[in-house]
Design a protein around this nucleic acid. Structure first.
Lengths: 239, 239
DNA sequence: TGTGGTTTAATGGTTGAACCAATTTGAGAG
DNA sequence: CTCTCAAATTGGTTCAACCATTAAACCACA
């Protein structure tokens, strides 16, 4: 199976370069970046293209731009939004396992919250969609497809909770996970077991039992976590 | 006390206009926006300026742009990231209280997770910073300043958890809350009580007792929630 | 001495026109 | 009906110029 050729836009390459310098500390918090005219000249791109990259950095909370002054680097611990985590994973400067560990802890927190809230607030139509997703999982599927359905399941849980915050948060998280999709997809899984675990979540949600839904979710989460850490040959270090 | 004068960039106004049309359904999911040349002409701005706005919309997950094809509207329930919630609040089309309710439920979930994780993983230096924030709260303070410190407290809790995901998530949430800062700041509060409630969270975190930290956090959260709903003259509808 | 006004230089914001590159469309060949 | 390829459409990039804001230097005056 071939991978689709990825065309990289110029502005995207520019973005990555500046971003890398922020993450590795070349540009520190408080520093002022060279002027747009200088930067564009140095990188050999047009000022408009460079500006596109700067705008995205600003939106991510990595820099702040003020007309007449310049573009300054922000402390990303204080300002960066959740989508930055994906970029950091790709730069893999922090890939000592700490970030992965962090992600799995968050996954647990979010998963439980979704299960609980869905059990409390789901409507009839929600149940149908949840069941449909679980039944769609088959053993002949490619791993990437199973993974996609697991995301859809989380999304449908969020929708079932009827909480806009949860819905958008799941979307944000999905983008982060997409960054290390390959790694995740390399983890072998028993699709039958996954289907079974998710089905029991749906069952509890259907009964409206928040406690059982959380328990079922925990089982599913720990199964995935165990497999992942085994694949990574990484110890589960956190409590 | 004066408010700083807000200068609105052209591209920002363009952004708002298109965004509004997406939220109110004028542009539906799947629709193709008019071409950049058309839109810029119609709005009376330069194509580059318009493109800046489109780029931001794309980054938010509201549209997708493909060279040669065009710019298409996405279903924001499936694609929008968490930062969109702020924009939706401002457009206040959904301000029937539902979103506020959603936010408070999420606030509870996040708050507890932070308290628990901080109690488990905090270091000595973290405690000092947490204490410092709590002590900084005084009764003579303006409400906006108290509010800022409450955000700082959450941020420091996230830092204490040593979980990058939590840190960035708090940053994202902060941006959402900033959108309805005025409303939040209009809620009268007993700063002494707040200080006391937060202090007991710190105390539990210091002892490393996750259970107590969560309990203390719950007290603090429900105090703020009660006040807010009273101010809004809104019933707490959700379970 | 310092307070406020003015000038100047640097920086980002916006504009306009032109051309490049990807995609879609549809007429025409087979 | 299907395939091919040229044309039209759309976003991506470049170039050059000018506008708006900011900060710093300088100056006048009390």
């Amino acid at each position: 199976m071939f991978e689709p050729v990825k065309r990289v836009k110029t502005s995207e390459q520019v973005l990555k370069q500046i971003q890398a310098r922020i993450f590795d500390g070349t540009y520190k918090a408080g520093d002022r970046l060279p002027s747009e005219r200088e930067l564009s000249l140095e990188m050999g791109v047009n000022r408009n293209t460079l500006r596109e990259a700067l705008k995205k950095l600003e939106h991510m909370g990595l820099v702040i731009t003020r007309q007449g002054d310049g573009t300054r680097v922000l402390d990303f611990y204080d300002n960066a939004g959740i989508e930055v985590l994906g970029s950091m994973l790709l730069d893999e400067a922090e890939s000592d396992g700490r970030v992965i560990d962090n992600l799995f802890e968050a996954r647990e927190m979010v998963g439980k919250a979704l299960a609980r809230s869905a059990a409390l607030y789901r409507e009839e139509e929600d149940l149908e969609r949840l069941r449909a997703v679980v039944e769609e999982i088959t053993s002949e599927m490619e791993l990437q497809e199973v993974q996609r359905l697991e995301y859809v399941f989380f999304h449908e849980l969020a929708v079932s909770s009827h909480n806009l915050f949860y819905i958008f948060m799941v979307n944000s998280i999905k983008k982060v996970y997409m960054s290390f999709r390959d790694l995740y997809a390399a983890t072998s899984r028993d699709t039958g077991k996954i289907q079974e675990l998710l089905a029991s979540v749906v069952e509890a949600v259907e009964r409206g039992s928040a406690g059982d839904a959380v328990k079922a979710m925990r089982k599913y989460l720990s199964y995935g976590k165990r497999l992942m850490f085994k694949t990574l040959k990484m110890p589960m270090r956190r409590k």
